[in-house]
Simulated assay, not measured.
Amino acid sequence: MDLRIFTEPQQGAAYDTLLTVAKATEDLGFDAFFRSDHYLRMGAVDGLPGPTDAWMTLAGLARETKRIRLGTLMTAGTFRLPGVLAIQVAQVDQMSGGRVELGLGAGWFEEEHKAYGIPFPKERFARLEEQLAIVTGLWATEVGKTFDFHGTYYDLTDSPALPKPAQRKVPVLIGGHGATRTPRLAARYADEFNVPFGSVEDSARQFARVRTAAVEAGRAADDLTYSNALVVCVGKDDQEVARRAAAIGREVDELKANGLAGSPAEVVDKIGRYAEIGSSRIYLQVLDLDDLDHLELIAGQVQSQLS
C-alpha cells in the first residue's frame, strides 16, 4: 500500500509551509506529495495568507525535492485552457526529472469561480472529456509532427505539441463518485482511478464500475491503479487523537466513521479493509500542516506496518 500526503493549501498555507511539508514527506519515506487545486477557502477558516497556485507550487517543489512524486487532486478543468495546461505540466515534469502526475477533474466549487472571475460553464463534464483528449493527445504526438483537435469547446490547429514531459507518459488520475460517465472517462484516459472520501463499501462499488468500463473499452481492468483519498487523524492515545481532531475542527467519531482516525493499529486495520477491495494507494488528507509530529507518527507506526 502506497501512502501519499495530500494537502489543502486553500485552507491557509504559504509556499514555505508547503515546502516544509513536502520535504518532510520525502524525508519520512512517503511516496508522494499532492495538493488540491483551489483558490478559495472552505468552511470556517480565514484562509490566510491566501491561496497558492497548484502548478506554480509544484514547479517550486520540483526543484526542491529529489524523490517523491508530485501532483494534484484534482486540477480543475475550468482553471486553465487544455493546451496551456499541457505545457505547464510538461514543464514541471521536466523540472522534476519525471516525477509529476496530473489529476484532472471538471471543477465544482462555484464560489471560487465567482470570487476570482473564472467562468463556470454548465457543460463542465463535456469540456473535461475534450480537455483529456487534448492534453494526452499533445503529449503523445511525435516530435516533428503536429496535433489537431476540432471539438465542440476547443479547437487546435497545427499545434507543434511541445514541450514534451520528461516521462514517456505522465500518469493521469481521474476520480469521483459518478456512476456512468466518470467510469467511462476513466476507462478511456486514466492511469489511476481515485475515490475521494468514500466508504469501503462505496469504493468497492465504484471500483467495480470502473473495472467493468475498462473491460468494455478494451483494457484490462488491472491496467488502472485504484486509490482512495481520506482525511487522516492519528494519535498515540485517545487524548492525542482528540487534540488533533479539535485542531482541524472535526469530531473523533465522525473522523473514525468517514476517514482514517484513531490509534496506529486502528488506522492500519482500516487501511487493510480498503486494500481488500483493491485499493493500492491512499492519499492521506493532512489538514494541520504545522503538525509535523503527525507525519512522523504515521511514518513510524502506520506506514512501517504496510510495507
Results as ranks from 00 to 15, higher is better:
Gly103Cys: 12
Gly103Val: 11
Gly103Asp: 06
Gly103Trp: 12
Gly103Tyr: 12
Leu104Ile: 14
Leu104Val: 08
Leu104Arg: 05
Leu104Tyr: 06
Leu104His: 02
Gly105Met: 12
Gly105Lys: 09
Gly105Ile: 11
Gly105Asn: 09
Gly105Phe: 07
Ala106Ile: 04
Ala106Pro: 06
Ala106Trp: 04
Gly107Glu: 07
Gly107Cys: 08
Gly107Asp: 08
Gly107Asn: 05
Gly107Ile: 08
Trp108Asn: 02
Trp108Val: 04
Phe109Pro: 07
Phe109Ala: 15
Phe109Ser: 10
Phe109Asp: 11
Phe109His: 15
Glu110Leu: 05
Glu111Met: 14
Glu111Asp: 14
Glu112Val: 05
Glu112Gln: 11
Glu112Arg: 01
Glu112Lys: 01
Glu112Thr: 04
His113Phe: 08
Lys114Cys: 00
Lys114Gly: 00
Lys114Asp: 08
Lys114Pro: 00
Lys114Glu: 10
Lys114Tyr: 01
Tyr116Val: 00
Tyr116Trp: 13
Gly117Cys: 08
Gly117Ile: 09
Ile118Gly: 07
Ile118Cys: 10
Pro119Asn: 03
Pro119Ile: 02
Pro119Cys: 06
Phe120Thr: 01
Phe120Lys: 03
Pro121Ser: 05
Pro121Arg: 03
Lys122Ala: 13
Lys122Met: 02
Lys122Arg: 14
Lys122Phe: 03
Glu123Arg: 14
Glu123Ser: 12
Glu123Met: 07
Glu123Lys: 15
Phe125Leu: 11
Ala126Met: 01
Ala126Glu: 10
Ala126Asp: 05
Arg127Trp: 02
Arg127Ala: 05
Arg127Ile: 04
Leu128Glu: 04
Leu128Asn: 03
Leu128Ile: 09
Glu129Cys: 01
Glu129Tyr: 00
Glu129His: 02
Glu129Ala: 07
Glu130Thr: 01
Glu130Pro: 00
Glu130Ala: 05
Gln131Arg: 10
Leu132Phe: 05
Ala133Phe: 01
Ala133Ile: 00
Ala133Arg: 11
Ala133Leu: 03
Ile134Thr: 07
Ile134Gln: 08
Ile134Glu: 09
Val135His: 07
Val135Arg: 09
Val135Asn: 09
Thr136Gly: 12
Thr136Asn: 09
Thr136Lys: 15
Thr136Cys: 09
Thr136His: 05
Leu138Met: 15
Trp139Thr: 05
Trp139Asn: 06
Trp139Lys: 06
Trp139Cys: 11
Ala140Gln: 15
Ala140Lys: 15
Thr141Leu: 13
Thr141Asp: 14
Glu142Asp: 15
Val143Ser: 15
Val143Phe: 03
Val143Cys: 06
Val143Asp: 15
Lys145Gln: 14
Thr146Phe: 10
Thr146Ala: 12
Thr146Met: 08
Thr146Arg: 14
Thr146His: 11
Thr146Ser: 14
Thr146Trp: 06
Phe147Ile: 09
Phe147Asp: 04
Phe147Ser: 06
Asp148Arg: 11
Phe149Lys: 07
Phe149Met: 02
Phe149Ser: 01
His150Tyr: 04
His150Glu: 13
His150Asp: 13
Gly151Lys: 02
Gly151Met: 01
Thr152Lys: 13
Thr152His: 07
Thr152Asp: 10
Thr152Glu: 14
Tyr153Gln: 05
Tyr154Asp: 03
Tyr154Ser: 11
Asp155Glu: 15
Leu156Asn: 09
Leu156Thr: 12
Thr157Phe: 11
Thr157Asp: 12
Thr157Arg: 15
Asp158Leu: 00
Asp158Val: 00
Asp158Tyr: 02
Asp158Met: 06
